[in-house]
Each structure stands twice: as C-alpha cells, then as structure tokens.
C-alpha cells in the first residue's frame, strides 16, 4: 500500500499523455473540424485551453507521484510539522491568475466577433435573412419576401416555414432570434454557434457556413418535455439555389389552388 498512491498519480499522468497522443487520431471526444471560420477560431481557443490544462494536469500528477515516492513514510520515523511557505503560496496564486488573465484577454477578440454588433458584418446585419421563433417544440421561421428587408412585425408578403432554415453558404448571414414561450437555445453544433432565445428579446445571431450542405439545428436549453424533439435543420446552399428556394416558397405559400383545378 505504501507506493500505491504514488503509482496511481504517476499512472494518471502517463494515461493522460497516451490519450492526448492517440485521442485525436481516433476521433475521441474531439469536436471535429468546425464548419465555419468563427467556429475554427472557437476551436483554436478550445485547443489552447486544452493544452494549458493538459500540461498542468500532467505536471501536477508527475510532481505528486514524485513527492509521494520520495517522502512516503518509513518505519520508525515520525513526520514533522511545518506551518507552510508564504513564497510558495504567492507563487501558486499568481501563476494560475496570470494564466486566467491571459485566457481572458486572449479570447476577447473571438467573443467580440461572435457577440458585438459593431463587429458583425454590417451588410448582413442590415439584411437579416430570417426571423427564427423558438416555441415548444419547434422552430418557426419567417423570411422577408425576396428583395425586401425583414421587419420586426409580420408583413403581408412574408414567407413562412417550420424547422427548415435555409441560408446562403460562404458568407456571413444574420437571423433574428426570438422565443414565443420559454427559454430555448439556438444551437448549430457544426458551426459552433449557440445563443439562448429569451422571451421578450429579439437577438441577432450571425453565422457563416463554409460549405453548402445540411447542418443540424438543435435546442440546447431544456425547454420542456418535448425538448429532445425540437430538431431543425440548416440548409446552406449557393446564393442562386437559395434565391430559387425562396421563389418556390413564395409560389407555394400564395397558391390559390386554381391552376390545379384547370389541369384536371
């Protein structure tokens, strides 16, 4: 039992090294490649913090193992009492504080790019593609008519869909996020975008999908019994396809059923 804890801590350091080495290759726990430029920056922050905490974890365990090995109790020797070391305490307070301060300052740019309206793409902010209203348990989407600007209140020519958000790929777009009932959270995991929808607030959210394809849209805030089924989809497509989609949506929504009768 004498050396057990010593080996335990050394083993965790060794295991950590092994997992850090083989983990990314096996795709364990890591979020994969982000599908947006901002997502890549967020991932870079994630990996930076992972590196800092990883090095600290391994170092602490190695030192713990070493100390337990060197100073473990010996037959007949009594331990002696020490009040502590002022210098040591100052060092282990200042160093982590310095690291935290560094992270806090270093991430500010990414945070500002994601959250500060002044840093948004101004053209996208002036022309939000849609208003997304979260409700138990679906995403109701309102687009402005093609060529028009989205208004705060519904307009006679607005277009509506549910759970199926379309957006042009390869450029920043803005949606306005609202909630009809309780707190929800608009989460595009592949794009690393997550924003709470708060009743009473209209929150602009921007994202940019690198590739034209379908991405998951999920609710990331436990909003009630049907939270798990509050799934949507973001379809990023080339601008031309997006325009065609909007045109078709308009035709469908203002269908008066008359032509079909003439066909028969």
């Amino acid at each position: 039992m004498n050396r057990f804890w010593c080996l335990f801590f050394v083993a965790s350091a060794v295991l950590a090294v092994v997992f850090f080495y083989i983990g990314p290759a096996c795709g364990w726990w890591f979020p994969g490649v982000a599908a947006s430029p901002l997502g890549q920056q967020i991932d870079d922050l994630f990996y930076l913090i992972l590196a800092i905490t990883g090095v600290t974890f391994i170092g602490v365990h190695a030192v713990l193992g070493y100390i337990l090995w060197k100073f473990s109790g010996k037959e007949g020797k009594r331990s002696d009492f020490q009040h502590g070391s002022h210098t040591l305490e100052v060092v282990w307070s200042i160093v982590p504080a310095g690291v935290l301060l560094f992270i806090a300052l270093y991430q500010m740019d990414v945070w500002a790019a994601f959250r500060m309206k002044s840093r948004f793409d101004q053209e996208a902010l002036a022309n939000p593609i849609a208003e997304v209203t979260a409700r138990q348990f679906e995403w109701r989407i309102r687009y402005p008519a093609p060529g028009k600007v989205l208004q705060d209140t519904p307009q006679p020519d607005d277009l509506y869909t549910v759970n199926d958000l379309h957006a042009p790929a390869g450029k920043p777009v803005v949606i306005k996020l609202r909630s009809e009932d309780v707190l929800h959270s608009f989460f595009l995991p592949h794009l690393r975008v997550k924003q709470d929808a708060v009743p009473g607030l209209v929150i602009p959210v921007w994202f940019e999908a690198n590739e034209p394809k379908a991405y998951d849209l999920v609710c990331a805030e436990l909003c009630g019994w049907g939270h798990y089924k509050m799934r949507g989809q973001l379809t990023a497509q080339p601008q031309a396809d997006f325009d065609a989609y909007m045109k078709k949506l308009k035709e469908t929504q203002f269908d008066d059923g008359f032509k079909e009768a003439a066909d028969e």
């Binding site: 138990q136 679906e138 109701r140 549910v162 759970n163 199926d164 049907g226 089924k229 989809q233």
Partner: peptide, 10 residues
Amino acid sequence: PGTYMPSFVL
C-alpha cells in the same frame, strides 16, 4: 401552428 402538434418535416 397554435397547437402542440409539431412539424415532422425532418
């Protein structure tokens, strides 16, 4: 819309 019946489009 206006009820709890959600869309199953996906």
